[in-house]
Design a protein around this nucleic acid. Structure first.
Lengths: 111, 111
DNA sequence: TAAATATATCGTAATATTGCAATATAATAG
DNA sequence: CTATTATATTGCAATATTACGATATATTTA
């Protein structure tokens, strides 16, 4: 049918999948990178930087905000976004945990 | 509309987004975890383990194989999948590079 | 208050993803 | 060769994502 059967999986599996989803678009990767570089970003700047429409950028910012890795503060007429340090660390650890699980020992019963 | 405008972004941004896409489904997270734990997995076992149809599991395995993080070897009538160590390391570093970029220095011009 | 500036949301079209039944393909056993 | 067993592919329906124009909302300036 087209609906992810979330109920078949653990909360952790669903969470990690959702976080990965936030990274699963080049525009959002670009936004994150811009943010890491400049320590702040504004919708309007990104429109120029990325070449996508204002509404589209806003949508991507919301996706990143929804999973908590960025946060925004009103700054005059515009909104300044930045990394949420706490959540960033959390997400980083989520991924680390998975990646560190693999120890390349020997090619025993492997292909 | 509705198509990701890949041409607006760098190869690196598109690559990372595609890798993230592979992680962006709880079933694929579960498959990866099962693989990390057992060092090998077989479509049929996963059907029982995850509770999804055989065709669906096969589809998810293909998605993981397409981005290279798993590989399969024919083993009698079935196919044994396992982590591709080289690619795994590569993908791990992709993510590390992004996550390590953020140094939580001070809340200066941030929100 | 009205105009200007900037972001968010709505509505909609195009495309992508998810899931599964049915079927095709491949390897082994008899 | 035929039946069995297991995986892959196809076709289709349901839902999700992406993108953008139009519009709503919010803040500042005149």
């Amino acid at each position: 049918m087209g609906v992810t059967k979330s109920d078949l999986f653990t909360k952790e599996q669903n969470d990690l999948a959702n976080v990965a989803k936030a990274f699963a678009h080049p525009a959002r990767i670009a936004i994150i990178q811009y943010l890491l570089k400049s320590n702040a970003c504004i919708n309007g700047h990104l429109v120029v930087e990325l070449g996508l429409a204002q509404a589209t950028i806003s949508q991507h910012l919301r996706a990143l905000k929804d999973i908590g890795i960025i946060q925004g503060a009103i700054e005059g007429v515009s909104v300044s976004y930045c990394i949420n340090p706490k959540r960033w660390e959390e997400v980083k650890n989520h991924f680390s945990n998975i990646f560190e699980l693999y120890k390349n020992p020997n090619q025993q019963n492997c292909c």
